[in-house]
């Protein structure tokens, strides 16, 4: 566990030290706030628009964080950083899990900051922040874990530029499961069904009815799926020759 946390700590500290991240979060909050000005163009639907924009931007932030790992792992493999670390008493699985934990924590912090920022912005424009909106954002945060696992999976055997593209496409289609298939044996099992984290419309309309247990189980699904993806990645990685 110590080893995993050592790798994870290095990863999340790298991301969270980047000043550009906080600048981007600020830009995201400005964009969310600017949705208020669309009251005329949307015929008075700016409240819904603001919630929807916040969920959209938070999801994009989560996807970007997940995609960033597809640059980091292949880069470390290419430059030999991974070899240096793996020459220490660190299993390859530990390395991947450490990377997954690190990037997931960074993703959770970033999406969490966006959620808090959104609540502040929304609260300053409207009277109250509904619980359904927060639940929508929590689901987006929960989706960070399986998305990062997908990123880790592809990054162990696909070159860095290609793995970013493949990961982004995979995440996109995993969010579009409803358009592709309703076979739960394949989706949500072997292939990821990130649509399980998508209750954006329901959150935007503040329909309510999202149980806390649903969010919890969705996060558990994300963790279970991440175990599967990381395990498969680790198996492939264990046969890989390192630079």
């Amino acid at each position: 566990m110590n080893e995993v946390m050592a790798i994870a700590g290095g990863t999340w500290s790298r991301i969270l030290r980047m000043r550009a991240i906080y600048f981007l979060i600020l830009c995201v909050l400005i964009l969310i706030g600017s949705a208020y000005r669309y009251d005329v163009l949307s015929l008075g639907l700016h409240r819904i628009l603001m919630i929807d924009v916040s969920l959209l931007l938070n999801t994009i932030a989560a996807i970007l964080v997940a995609v960033s790992i597809t640059f980091e792992i292949p880069k470390e493999l290419r430059e030999g950083v991974a070899s240096t670390l793996l020459s220490k008493p660190l299993g390859r699985t530990h390395y991947l899990v450490g990377k997954l934990v690190g990037i997931s924590v960074a993703g959770l912090v970033i999406t969490g900051l966006i959620m808090i920022g959104f609540c502040l912005v929304f609260g300053s424009f409207f009277d109250r922040v509904g619980i359904t909106m927060v639940q929508g954002h929590l689901l987006v945060m929960g989706s960070v874990i399986p998305m990062c696992a997908i990123g880790v999976f592809f990054s162990v055997f696909i070159p860095e530029s290609l793995s970013a593209i493949v990961t982004a496409i995979c995440i996109w289609f995993a969010h579009s499961v409803i358009a592709l298939s309703n076979v739960p044996v394949v989706y949500a099992g072997i292939l990821p069904d990130l649509n399980l984290f998508n209750l954006k419309a329901e959150a935007a309309y503040e329909l309510g009815g999202i149980e806390w247990s649903y969010i919890l189980v969705a996060i558990l699904w994300g963790v279970a799926y991440s175990v599967f993806a990381t395990s498969l990645a680790s198996l492939i990685f264990s046969y890989k020759d390192l630079k």
Binding site: A188, I190, N195, L196, L199, I210, W221, A224, Y225, F228
Partner: peptide, 19 residues
């Protein structure tokens, strides 16, 4: 893990249809 995620995913799909 596939078994667990399939089991959880099936339940979630059902609940999601309700929401």
């Amino acid at each position: 893990s596939v078994g667990v995620s399939y089991w959880l995913g099936s339940g979630l799909l059902e609940t999601q249809t309700g929401i």
